[in-house]
Each structure stands twice: as structure tokens, then as C-alpha cells.
């Protein structure tokens, strides 16, 4: 892997980030409704129009869109993402406490997905058309179809209420890792199980494809042990599509945190974003999207790096 490859990949980020932020800036303002409606609530009926106009102007929302955009970009380049329209807190201050819990949830979900999905899929492939294969694939289809909201409530009900072995809600004591992990178990299972099912299907088909390749037959013909053929030759080659799915799925997992954070009452960026969209809290929406876009870009970058490490052909391309 050479430096030019990394720089090339890195330069793609700039237009991607700019595009995402610009698009969100415009779309959220074109959506019907205004933050002022939310700020005044049903008192808007009884608030004189000149008072409403004054409040709109005080946020600069009476300015033309391009003026608002220019001001936003100018401030953002200086690291100032503005203030929440709902409570005047700086956007960075609103988002910062939620970044860690969201990342923890997404990676814990990924861990659950990889730890369950990959071995299950490989096992199903190696025991094709047996009870193991049918069992794994049936579960995979069922889990893929289960809405995460439903699964979350079910987990809360079973492990928090009926057999109360794990906390029903909350994020644990911040900074106390064992406590945070304890509160992470149910949400991680809820968010990771769909990905586990997806990975199981992907691992199965990828392994089956590789196992039918000539080099696997050659390895067997050389008299290598079955375990060596599978682990050293087949799985390393089957890993490429699996890594692709993991990379893509991490973006899904970050997006999926919204539902999980809501049901399990976890702090996090997903719920913050949804609330901000509902309240038309423009600066917070823009800040969240910026963080999500950055996160997805970093994941894509790492996936590319993983390709290059796994497959020398990518490096020389």
C-alpha cells in the first residue's frame, strides 16, 4: 500500500463532506415547518405576528438562503457549528457527550454480528444441506425480517422485566467501563442481530463459492488437512466480500442506533438527530450529519485499507 493510494482515497472525502453538509443545509430548510413553530408551541396562536417576526429575525432565519449558507460555512471553517435553536447550547457541546455512546453501541453491535454471523455462515457452508445449514439459514431469515424496534422491546420485556438479569434502560455510569458494558449487552444484541443474520448469509455464500475454486481443490489434492484448507486457503479468500459487508453494515449500524437509543433510553447521536429534525433545530441537524458523514467516510477508508491489506491486487491497481 503506497502513500499515493491513501492520499487519493483521502482527497475524495472533501467533496463528499461538502456535498452532504450542503444538501442537508438546503433540504432541512425546504422541509415544511419552522423551528419557531416548535419554540412557541401552541402559544404561537396567542403570540402577535410582530413578536414572531422578531424572534425569526433574531435567529437570522429571515435572511436569504445563500446568506445563511455563507455564514454557516464561514463559521464552520473556524470550527464553530453554531448554537441549538431550542436551548442556545453550542452544537459541539450538544453532540460531544453522545458521540462515545453511539460509537460504543455501533461497534458492540458489529462485534455481536461478526462473532455470531461469520462462524454461523461458515459452519453452514461447510455442512451444506445438513440440519446445521438449514437451521442457520432459517434463523438468519427470521432475524433479518424482525424489526429492531420489536426485538428491542422483546429483549427489554424478557431480560429486564420477566427475568431481570440486565438493566432495562440507560447507558450506565459514564467512564465506568464495566457498568457501561453491562448496559450495552441488550442494545448490542438488538442492533447486531440483524447484521449477524446478514453476515451469516454472506459468509455462507462466499465460503461456498471459494470452496468450489480450483486452488482449494489443488490444496486438497496436495494432501493438506481439511482444517488447513479451510482456514488458511478458503477463508482468507472468502474474507473480501465479508469485509465489504461489514464496512457497509457499520454505516447501517450507526443509522440503526436511533431506534435502539430510543427504546433503551441510551444517550446517543441517533436520537439527538431525530429530535433535532422534528424540532427543525437546523444547526444541530447539520452538526449531526457532519459527524455521521465523517464517521461513514472513515469507515469506508478503513474498508479500503483492509482491501489493500487482504488483496495485493488492490494495491497494484
Amino acid at each position: 500500500m503506497n502513500a499515493a493510494y491513501l492520499v487519493r482515497r483521502f482527497l475524495v472525502f472533501v467533496p463528499t463532506i461538502t456535498g452532504a453538509v450542503t444538501l442537508v443545509f438546503i433540504v432541512i430548510r425546504l422541509a415544511p415547518g419552522s423551528p419557531i413553530d416548535i419554540i412557541l408551541g401552541d402559544f404561537k396562536d396567542v403570540t402577535p405576528r410582530e413578536t414572531v417576526a422578531r424572534i425569526v429575525a433574531s435567529y437570522g432565519l429571515d435572511q436569504p438562503l445563500h446568506v445563511q449558507y455563507a455564514r454557516y460555512v464561514e463559521r464552520a471553517l473556524r470550527g464553530d457549528l453554531g448554537f441549538s435553536l431550542m436551548n442556545d447550547r453550542p452544537v459541539l457541546q450538544v453532540l460531544a457527550p453522545h458521540l462515545r455512546p453511539t460509537l460504543m453501541l455501533a461497534f458492540a453491535g458489529l462485534l455481536v454480528a461478526v462473532a455470531i454471523g461469520v462462524p454461523a455462515g461458515v459452519a453452514a457452508a461447510l455442512r451444506r444441506n445438513t440440519g446445521t445449514d438449514y437451521g442457520v439459514m432459517t434463523f438468519a431469515v427470521l432475524w433479518l425480517s424482525a424489526p429492531s424496534f420489536w426485538l428491542s422491546i422483546l429483549l427489554v420485556y424478557v431480560f429486564g422485566y420477566l427475568v431481570p438479569v440486565l438493566p432495562m434502560f440507560g447507558g450506565g455510569t459514564t467512564g465506568d467501563l464495566p457498568s457501561e458494558l453491562r448496559y450495552l449487552v441488550l442494545p448490542a444484541i438488538a442492533i447486531g442481530s440483524r447484521s449477524a443474520a446478514l453476515l451469516a448469509r454472506m459468509s455462507r455464500s462466499s465460503t461456498l463459492e471459494i470452496m468450489a475454486q480450483d486452488f482449494v481443490r489443488t490444496a486438497r489434492a496436495k494432501g493438506l488437512a481439511g482444517r488447513v484448507v479451510v482456514y488458511k486457503h478458503a477463508l482468507r479468500n472468502a474474507a473480501m466480500p465479508i469485509v465489504t459487508v461489514i464496512g457497509l453494515d457499520l454505516a447501517y449500524l450507526v443509522g440503526g442506533t436511533v431506534v435502539i437509543e430510543t427504546v433503551f433510553a441510551r444517550p446517543g447521536l441517533g436520537k439527538t438527530l431525530i429530535d433535532a429534525i422534528n424540532n427543525r433545530d437546523y444547526p444541530v441537524v447539520q452538526g449531526c450529519i457532519l459527524v455521521f458523514a465523517l464517521g461513514i467516510i472513515v469507515v469506508n477508508f478503513l474498508t479500503d485499507v483492509a482491501y489493500a491489506l487482504l488483496d495485493p491486487r488492490v494495491r497494484f491497481d
Binding site: I153, Y161, M168, F169, G170, V263, A265, K271
Partner: peptide, 18 residues
Amino acid sequence: LRIIPQETVVALALARGE
């Protein structure tokens, strides 16, 4: 004051004594 967005979970937590 615990913030729990899902009210069904609030009801279950009350029932469990949490």
C-alpha cells in the same frame, strides 16, 4: 428524573420497581 423516550419501557420499569 430518568429520561426514557419509550413510554412502554417507563411502565415496565414502574412495574419492576425501578
